[in-house]
Nucleic acid binder design. Structure first.
Lengths: 340, 340
DNA sequence: GACTGGCACTCGCCGATCAGGAGTGCCAAC
DNA sequence: GTTGGCACTCCTGATCGGCGAGTGCCAGTC
């Protein structure tokens, strides 16, 4: 049996009311607060069908109805109208992201902004190295046998790494190495560098070969292999809103999951450009997060992607609002990065 | 009235039992589990005195006793024997801190180690810029009017900042600026740099004055004025151990406080070298943390201080254990930094 | 056929009540 | 100063009944 318009309207009303009040919603309350144009008895019949179809359920006999994950899903896919940001929110975003000092600052501000606007836990990934290009490589002699390698990416990320050389190395050699490395690698996407780095070693004069090989190893290791993703978290305190009712009684597993960067990266990764992805309840692959929902998006200058961001909260969350906010923040962040 | 040895022994037993069981401890249970050599009636008398003096209290009439903050304080100051680390713990520390890749890695590992060993929330501050010296300043041209300023400190911290120049700047000028800046500033403690930077500007040839002034502004701003401290947090999930009983019913305020870097810095700052500081309950100045205790220490190569670290948990915590762990980790971390 | 008012029924919630038990304070005796 | 004993307190957990929100169903109406 397919659901007619009114039943969908009832579902929407249930979701909205439940999200707002956090209490099971009954047929009587529904007709009072929404102009459905029918009596509570009719709504009850509709509810029975919706329950039959698995979109809502009763916590116990003779209690109101609560949306199921399937209900939220339907709501998000077909029922929620896009909620435009309020001017105040727009202003907040612009003010918050104005005049950042450096990349850390940008990410820091963004994540706090996101947490504040959505009142959920916010996650922002730093621009991914894998998706960055080399802007410049700097070699700074620290001692006669040690060089600090500093890589500056076009996304603003700066990575450094200490390189232990096999033997003493003259300042002139450092200059030469720097020139060569930059000549070859500057402007290249990090993902494309491995063969180029290898070529660098091969092209080297025998007496410099050892040093260069050493440098190359660290280069590859740092920039590509353990291409570490970084991210920032904010708003964990928001998990405690609404008592311990959400999250089936315990914050524990959620907090634990939030400590694992790998998990977080998975959560906010792999989203098509300019879209928003919503994972509801056990659509999350992580067991500890079966009681949460995640709204995530990708960001980057223009239509490219350099990283992801998102918010996490109870399945009982304001999806339209959060989706709008996440999308807007992602776009602002992309624009901001494009400016540099 | 002063407390005789047995009363102190009773207090210690109460603290130890309460920390272990998280339940008010009664006179009967005490004599059973500790060899006090007296009857429960005697212990009851002692308890009455201890309560009189404010070291323990009853949650309600006819319940066991619970230590007060004053009781914990006395316990920490006079009653707790130093608990040496187990070989397993030592090994864990050594394994955890072996072969770090860079400073981020060091801090990251340290904070997770601390959280894991103490089963509390751990905080580790990055080496403070204010206490670092300049090892090298690098100027990397990004475009004709933009330079990226990279500062490498002796503590391993690397800070970068984009400098917008008043006009186009030639590569030769960059080289010259770099030479001058390093000549003057390398090896200097950051705190001492402001007059030196000013001198740099004054010494400049008029045609380079503008550029140098611009650079100087950013230098001062980045390195000294908004000398930003960074830190890392781990183990927030540990707050949920022991139900919501600790923290007077709500994690909320605690989680909120943990989001404020300023607060965290205050918590773990200002500790004498080679000592450990313990703040119990409302000895903390932060209202949100009145229900928590903090064990903190400073670290640095040798006897110097470059940063702080610590753990935070319920007042009902294993003080001797946590003190030992914090101290040990601080020392290992200091040694590790000394090696570089 | 869809909607509505009415009504009996279910069942969680809340407060009251009560027994059990852990723990105390006090006192007399040693 | 210490101890055994005893009356007392009061928290905990279980039980119970009334209340009320909410439902499902049915007969009647448009």
């Amino acid at each position: 049996m397919s659901l007619d318009d009114r039943k969908l309207e009832v579902l929407r009303a249930i979701v909205e009311d439940y999200v707002a009040t956090q209490e099971p919603v009954g047929s009587k309350a529904l007709v009072e607060r929404h102009q459905l144009g029918v009596s509570s008895a009719t709504v009850r019949n509709d509810m029975a069908v919706l329950e039959e179809e698995g979109y809502i359920r009763q916590p116990h006999t003779s209690a109101g109805r609560v949306p199921t994950n399937a209900g939220y899903r339907l709501f998000v896919d077909r029922l929620s109208r896009v909620k435009p940001l309020s001017p105040a929110e727009r202003r907040a975003i612009e003010r918050f992201l104005a005049d950042p000092v450096d990349l850390d600052d940008v990410v820091h501000r963004t994540v706090r902004l996101l947490a504040q606007l959505t009142r959920q836990v916010a996650v922002v990934q730093y621009p991914s190295l894998a998706r960055s290009s080399v802007r410049h490589l700097e070699l700074v002699p620290i001692s006669t046998t040690r060089i600090m390698l500093v890589m500056i990416a076009d996304t603003g990320r700066v990575e450094q790494r200490l390189v232990e050389m096999p033997g003493p190395i003259a300042p002139a050699d450092v200059t030469e190495l720097r020139r060569k490395v930059n000549e070859k690698l500057a402007g290249q996407r990090l993902a494309d560098t491995p063969p180029l780095v290898q070529a660098l070693v091969d092209d080297c004069s025998p007496e410099r070969r050892g040093t260069m090989a050493c440098l190359a190893t660290v280069l590859l290791e740092t920039l590509v292999e353990r291409s570490e993703e970084r991210l920032m978290l904010a708003g964990t305190a928001n998990l405690t809103r609404g008592g311990v009712l959400d999250f089936q009684g315990s914050l524990r597993p959620v907090l634990e999951a939030l400590e694992e960067e790998v998990i977080l990266l998975k959560l906010i990764g792999e989203v098509e450009p300019s879209t928003t992805r919503v994972r509801i309840g056990d659509e999350n692959e992580i067991d500890n997060l079966r009681s949460t929902s995640v709204v995530s998006a990708s960001y980057g200058p223009g239509a490219t992607i350099v990283g992801g961001l998102g918010v996490l909260g109870p399945t009982r969350m304001d999806y339209p609002g959060n989706i709008a906010t996440v999308r807007a923040v992602a776009r602002y962040l992309g624009d901001l990065l494009a400016q540099n």
